[in-house]
Computed example of a mutant assay.
Amino acid sequence: MSPTPPPPAFGLTRRERILDELHRSGSVRVSDLARDLGVAELTVRRDIGALADQGLLTRVHGGATLRSALDTSIPQRRAAGPPKYRVGMIVPSLSYYWPQIILGARAAASATGVQLVLRGASYAVDDQRRQIASLLDGESLHGLIVAAETSGPEGATLLQWLDDIPLPVVLVERHAPSALGLTRVEWVTSDHVVGGTLAARHLAERGHRRVGLLTSPGSPTSAPLRKGWKRAVRELGLVATVDSSAALDTLAGAGREAEIDRILDECRRTGTTALTIHSDPQAVLFQQHARDRGWNLPADLAIVAYDDEVAESAEPPITALRPPKQQVGRLAVETMAARLADGRRRPVQRTYLLPELRRRESTAR
């Protein structure tokens, strides 16, 4: 049987574009690629299958991700010998949001000769410090990748401690206030300030003039998101009508309904036609309750979500800002590997990645 001929030039170009998009955002969807490339979804699925067979990506339902260290479908292309470095990684959650960052980190670790030692913590500073100290005491580590809390006096103390320890430290999806004057800690983070700006601009482009914001209390994302959103609202000449903070996804049924009803009443009273909501679960809960109360969405109220974990599965699908989570994890490991390889002669690197706006029916004209 003769070998299968290589794909034509346009096929190679198409697959290169798929890989470029994958390395830019960390994951791709068949439907998005088919639209962007102007080909059938079946063609994209075949391209993804061919790239997976070469070990260049991992197929998932509806798309592909960066090659995972857990993908055993074909042998991994590993560096010769044992890992060069052992790096501790501490994240505040092993469920929502962070699995994608961990996936990107593992893919980069496999490619750069890094052994990751993962620990889950919480959003409490004391717990994070305890987990970090336990890793430092019990493991022979070369560096730390940490999603540390950064707000308030306790956060400032934790950051100062991390800047003083004798190991390289890379913050992941976090950054330190410039007033602390830290000189050693590096970071890779999504630029949530720009994310807030993009949300407000999208609503302005859709013709909305009276807009509101609902964020999650205690989330490190909320403050920079609000900063960018408020600045854009002011610069675009919009009217900020609603500004609330609520934990809809943790409230009991009656309490949740009462809180959403309160915000809906405020939207109706102020003539608000669009809301930006962080996070995805809040946006989905808010939207479905509004529909149950007879609101016509998006005609009565447009919604933009932030995080894009489950927004696409809502009814209608919710427009969302998607932080490049896998790429954040990947670049955090690559930054650490470069630091360990180059030592102190390497300039301190602090990287911000822009979220991507995914337009869906919840903000349709």
Score class of each variant (00 low, 15 high):
Arg269Pro: 12
Leu182Trp: 06
Lys84Glu: 03
Leu331Thr: 08
Arg293Tyr: 00
Val169Phe: 04
Gly218Phe: 15
Gly271Glu: 02
Leu162Val: 04
Leu214Asn: 10
Leu159Pro: 06
Arg262Lys: 04
Pro298Val: 04
Val193Met: 10
Gln327Thr: 10
Gly55Ala: 14
Ala311Met: 12
Ile90Met: 11
Arg129Leu: 15
Leu19Ala: 01
Leu275Ile: 01
Gly218His: 08
Glu41Ile: 02
Gly255His: 08
Ala107Val: 01
Leu42Met: 15
His23Leu: 01
Gln287Cys: 05
Leu70Gly: 13
Thr272Gln: 13
Thr215Ile: 12
Gly237Tyr: 15
Lys227Ala: 13
Val348Ser: 14
Ala320Gln: 00
Ala314Ser: 10
Arg291Ser: 11
Thr363Arg: 03
Gly120Leu: 10
Val60Tyr: 14
Arg330Glu: 14
Leu51Phe: 10
Arg268Gly: 04
Leu141Val: 13
Ala338Ile: 02
His175Ile: 06
Leu331Ser: 09
His208Glu: 02
Pro168Leu: 00
Ile145Gln: 07
Pro5Glu: 00
Leu213Tyr: 06
Glu16Pro: 07
Leu203Gln: 07
Arg358Met: 11
Ala133Trp: 05
Ile303Trp: 04
Val170Trp: 06
Thr276Arg: 08
Pro75Ser: 04
Ala105Ser: 09
Ser313Lys: 10
Thr272Met: 01
Arg269Cys: 03
Ala283Glu: 03
Thr13Gly: 00
Gly11Met: 00
Gln160Arg: 13
Leu357Ile: 01
Leu198Glu: 03
Gly143Pro: 00
Ser27Glu: 03
Ile263Gln: 08
Ser134Trp: 07
Ala40Pro: 11
Val91Tyr: 03
His61Glu: 12
Leu116Ile: 13
Arg322Met: 11
Ala337Gln: 11
Gly38Ile: 11
Arg78Tyr: 10
Thr250Trp: 05
Arg234Ile: 10
Leu158Asp: 08
Val39Glu: 10
Pro92Leu: 05
Asp280Ile: 03
Gly152Asn: 05
Leu251Lys: 03
Ala364Phe: 01
Asp126Val: 11
Glu235Val: 13
Arg46Asp: 14
Gln326Glu: 15
Gln326Met: 11
Val28His: 02
Ala34Trp: 06
Pro324Trp: 13
Leu103Val: 09
Ala147Asn: 15
Tyr96Thr: 02
Arg226Lys: 15
Gly212Asn: 12
Ser122Cys: 12
Val239Asn: 12
Leu70Pro: 06
Gly271Phe: 12
Ala40His: 14
Arg365Lys: 08
Ala50Met: 15
Arg226Tyr: 05
Lys325Gly: 01
Thr112Tyr: 09
Leu37Phe: 06
Gly255Asn: 04
Pro220Ile: 04
Asp127Trp: 10
Glu315Thr: 14
Leu135Gln: 09
Gly120Val: 07
